Simulated scan of single mutants.
Amino acid sequence: MDEIELLQEAANLYTVQPDEHFGAWFQAVEPLSKEESYSLSCQLEPRYHWVRKIRLFFKGKKNRSGQNTRPPTKGPVVVVDDPSETS
């Protein structure tokens, strides 16, 4: 709680002035559809990177009782990459 209070106090020391040019640009930006947003996200960081990160995160993790938190797999996990990434 002390850290939160310090952060709030520090933030109150700043005065942010609106920038009219940025405001006009921001209001003119067309929002992306869910599909466009997902496609852009995959271009920036392809799906297989996330799968690898998640696997590495859970690999060897143990809970408080010393048991692995990773559920046992019933077979090999197959990750199908987006065909557009290989072209």
Score class of each variant (00 low, 15 high):
Met1Gln: 07
Asp2Gln: 10
Asp2Cys: 04
Ile4Val: 15
Ile4Cys: 10
Leu6Gly: 04
Leu6Ile: 14
Leu6Thr: 13
Leu6Met: 14
Gln8Ser: 06
Gln8Arg: 11
Glu9Phe: 05
Ala10Lys: 12
Leu13Asn: 11
Thr15Gln: 07
Val16Asn: 01
Gln17Arg: 11
Gln17Gly: 03
Pro18Gly: 02
Asp19Phe: 04
Asp19Arg: 02
Glu20Leu: 13
Glu20Trp: 04
Ala24Lys: 14
Ala24Thr: 08
Ala24Met: 09
Phe26Trp: 13
Ala28Tyr: 01
Val29Gln: 12
Leu32Phe: 11
Leu32Glu: 15
Glu36Ala: 05
Ser37Cys: 14
Ser39Asn: 02
Ser39Phe: 01
Ser39Cys: 01
Ser39His: 03
Leu40Met: 06
Ser41Gly: 08
Leu44Phe: 13
Leu44Trp: 09
Glu45His: 06
Pro46Gly: 03
Arg47His: 05
Tyr48Lys: 06
His49Arg: 06
Val51Tyr: 06
Val51Glu: 05
Arg52Trp: 09
Arg52Pro: 00
Lys53Gly: 04
Leu56His: 09
Leu56Trp: 09
Phe57Cys: 05
Phe58Trp: 15
Lys59Ala: 10
Gly60Asp: 08
Lys61Ser: 01
Lys62Ser: 07
Lys62Arg: 15
Lys62Cys: 11
Arg64Thr: 10
Ser65Val: 13
Ser65His: 12
Gly66Met: 01
Gln67Thr: 06
Arg70Pro: 00
Pro72Cys: 01
Lys74Glu: 14
Pro76Gln: 13
Pro76Tyr: 06
Val78Pro: 01
Val80Cys: 04
Pro83Gln: 02
Pro83Glu: 04
Pro83Ile: 05
Pro83Val: 08
Ser84Gly: 02
Ser84Met: 11
Glu85Trp: 12
Thr86Tyr: 11
